[in-house]
């Protein structure tokens, strides 16, 4: 053995020993102590900074309050509105329209999509209608709904339903079409009946698609409620915003925006919780 070879061998042996015995100061990829809260910390700081920046800009009155009220102005408008007692009624009306319309869209849209995707010929028959309505801006139908269902709840429930229905249907169809055909074949070979396939494979297998359809549908439902009420209603957040806007009560418009946004955030969070529940079997990243 040459000297160099012996040296190299000794070096390798050393390297191996060091690798085994040494306790590393820090393992690459191991998160530091604050890494876990990084997301929450940075997010909060960013939002708070934005609010402060907005308040400062508003308070030095670069623009008149009429044009850009600050967060504190909006808060004051909110308190005033609460005292007049109409805000509660507006929230109640809009909430009803949203939840009834959206709930109906899920209850009807889900089986509708499953059946359309599962029974090919039913799909052939209904595809043209779904495509037609999905391509049409649903708010364009609203004047029709006003004629059919009047100024009250009915017309808004209808427009919310129509807004949320199609994203849910289309996503459900996509979910079923994306099922692993090997799973269907497997179940068939064990003499599974149609109902078994539905309950044990089609439904659980398309849950991720269905839930993202529900989330898309929620966005459409919120738009529909606000726009519907702005066009024709007797009460509701949308109407309140439209009225406030027409007399330049800008802070009240912002109150409406925060309520609608808040509702959207809360409902999305609930959907995310449901999503997490259904997907506990997924590998954790």
């Amino acid at each position: 053995m040459t000297d160099r070879a012996a040296q190299r061998e000794a070096a390798t042996r050393d390297a191996v020993e060091t690798r085994v015995s040494a306790t590393p100061d820090r393992i690459p990829g191991q998160p530091g102590p604050i890494a876990r809260y990084e997301r929450a910390i940075i997010g909060t700081v960013s939002v708070v900074s934005f609010l402060i920046f907005w308040e400062v800009i508003a308070q030095i009155r670069l623009m008149p309050e009429l044009f850009l009220p600050g967060p504190s102005d909006i808060w004051r408008a909110y308190l005033v509105l609460l005292k007049t007692n109409t805000l509660g009624r507006d929230i109640w009306v809009s909430g009803q329209e949203l939840l009834v319309g959206y709930g109906l869209a899920i209850v009807v849209g889900l089986p509708f999509g499953l059946l359309m995707a599962w029974y090919k010929r039913l799909g052939f028959a209904l595809d043209p209608f779904v495509n037609f309505f999905f391509a049409t801006p649903r708010t364009a139908m609203f004047p029709l709904f006003l004629i059919w269902f009047g100024l009250g709840l009915g017309s808004k429930v209808a427009i919310v339903f129509l807004g949320a229905f199609f994203p849910i249907v289309i996503n459900t169809i996509a979910g079923v079409r994306n099922l692993d055909p090997a799973l269907i074949r497997m179940a068939r070979s064990f003499s599974a009946r149609d109902w078994d396939l539905f309950r044990d494979i089609v439904l659980p297998g398309s849950v991720p698609f269905i839930l993202s359809g529900c989330r898309l549908g929620l966005g459409h439902a919120l738009i529909s409620v606000v726009v519907g009420e702005m066009i024709g209603a007797e009460a509701g957040i949308g109407l309140m915003m439209a009225n406030a806007g027409s007399v330049f009560q800008t802070a009240r418009v912002f109150v409406g925006i925060t309520i609608v946004a808040g509702a959207g955030v809360i409902l999305t969070l609930i959907l995310q919780k449901i999503e997490a529940r259904f997907q506990s079997w997924k590998p954790q990243p």
């Binding site: 090997a182 799973l183 074949r185 497997m186 068939r188 070979s189 064990f190 003499s191 079997w281």
Partner: peptide, 16 residues
């Protein structure tokens, strides 16, 4: 298909 036969598939085909 019938209960007198059972298949082991090339892909495991397990319900995830």
């Amino acid at each position: 298909p019938g209960p007198d036969r059972a298949m082991v598939f090339q892909q495991a085909s397990l319900l995830p």
